[in-house]
Structure formats: C-alpha cells, structure tokens
C-alpha cells in the first residue's frame, strides 16, 4: 500500500542532511511552505544551498534560516524584497553566497532537472552581466545562453489538498514554483491544508501527480 502521508512536520523533514540543496516554493508571501521551513530550522541541517524566488522577508521562513546562519548560498531571482534585511545584512558581510538567476530561467532550470535534460539555450540574459562565463550560441539569428539544470536534494512545497498517493491540487497563485520544484528534487516534501480520500481529487484537475511526491504533511490552514 502506498501512503505518503506523515504524521508530523518533524517526520516530514527528517533526514535532510547538512550541505543539502533545498528548493523552497513560494513567490513573495504566496505559496511559501512556512511550516516546513520552520521544521527544517528545528531539524538543524546547516550549510544549505537554498533555491527560491526571493530571499525571505521579516523574521519568518527563509529569512529565519538565513538569520540563523544555516544558509551558505542562495540561488534566486529577486533577493531585494521589502524587508529582506537578514539576507542584505549577511550579503554585505560576505557571509552568504548569491547566484542570481532570471526568474524564468530559474524555473526552467529546475524543469530541466526534473525532466532529465542536460540544460537548455535561452535568449533570456544574452548580452547581459548574467551571461558572463556562459556558453553563447546563435540560434535563429539570436544569441542564446546555455543554462544548466538545477536539481535539488529536497523540495519543500505548499499545496492545498493531497491524497495518500501524493496527488496534489494547489490554491490560486500559491501554485507558482510548486509543480516544477516537485519534479526536480530527490526528496519532495509537501505541506497541505487538507487530506482527501483516494479518488476524491478529480483526475482531470490533479496538478502534480503523486509520482513526483515523497512525503505529505497536513498543516492547519
């Protein structure tokens, strides 16, 4: 019998090791797996590479991981949101590494990892600072930059509902990076607001099929 549900947030993040690359869903405040990130904080893994759109804000989730010096390096597209004080402070002090990636490239690099591809050529970033040191090829008369796949050891994702096979539906724009990240990690951990019985999710509207999911934990909405 397949049952990917786990009973606690601690079980959900068990085994994440020091030095892991962790993909964290969310865009701004929406779709951030806040409780899973706090469980990771409690779990203690350090020296992490975190891949996420923003660099956290205030004192919550990714910002808290950064504040506690648990993140060695962040890979993101927009680390300068309102309230990204911890990232900015550590960045200025040279205590955290930053790999800046255009947003569409960030997502597509994870998609490539999940799809088993060796990378891709994109026009995004050609002739800019972010293409420095990368292979450039002219395709259709236009320069394209080669981008490598970006796999994670772990993905932390927030969805709305799941069944015990790990099939997922999301809520509104909280979906953002979730479906892509779920495909790109060795261990995909999902927090949901509600568990439903197998068969209760309309198969026509399942967004992430359970094959991409390893653990699901319920968190009160």
């Amino acid at each position: 019998m397949i049952d990917k549900r786990v009973g606690s947030l601690a079980d959900a993040v068990a085994g994440i090791s020091d030095g892991a690359t962790v993909l964290v869903g969310g865009f701004g405040d929406s779709g951030v797996p806040v409780e899973l990130v706090h469980a990771l904080l409690d779990q203690g893994a350090r020296d992490l590479t975190v891949v996420t759109n923003n660099a956290g804000a205030g004192e919550s989730d990714v910002a808290a991981l950064i504040r506690e010096r648990r993140v060695r390096r962040i890979v993101c597209s927009y680390p300068r949101s309102m309230g990204s004080i911890w990232f900015e402070e550590l960045w200025r002090a040279g205590e955290i590494g930053l790999e800046l990636v255009p947003q569409g490239t960030l997502s597509e690099r994870m998609r490539a990892a999940g799809a088993g591809l060796g990378g891709f050529f994109t026009p995004t970033g050609a002739d800019t600072l972010l293409a420095e040191g990368k292979e450039v090829r002219t395709i259709g008369g236009r320069p394209h930059v080669f981008e490598h796949p970006l796999p994670g050891d772990v993905a932390l994702v927030k969805a709305h509902r799941a069944d015990r096979w790990g099939n997922l539906v999301y809520r509104k724009a909280a979906r953002n990076y979730g479906p892509t990240m779920a495909t790109a990690a060795t261990l995909t951990v999902v927090q949901v607001e509600e568990f439903v019985e197998l068969g209760d999710l309309d198969p026509e509207t399942v967004v992430t099929p359970g094959i991409f999911v390893d653990r699901v934990v319920q968190v009160a909405a």
């Binding site: 701004g28 997502s107 597509e108 724009a173 953002n176 892509t180």
Partner: peptide, 30 residues
C-alpha cells in the same frame, strides 16, 4: 495572500481567468 501580482500586491481574477505554474508563466512570456 495567495492571489497577488508580480509586485506582490493583492489582485483579483476575472471570469475566464486561469492559474498555472511558474514554468508555464514563462513559457507564455519567453
């Protein structure tokens, strides 16, 4: 909070609107 625009401001969805994941959002753009 789960319905915001790229500037992280709250927005609404019009009839006929749809949600999709980030990779598809940039498939549309790129």
């Amino acid at each position: 909070r789960e319905l915001i625009n790229a500037g992280k401001q709250p927005v609404t969805l019009l009839p006929g609107g749809s949600y999709f994941h980030h990779t598809d959002a940039f498939v549309m753009m790129r």
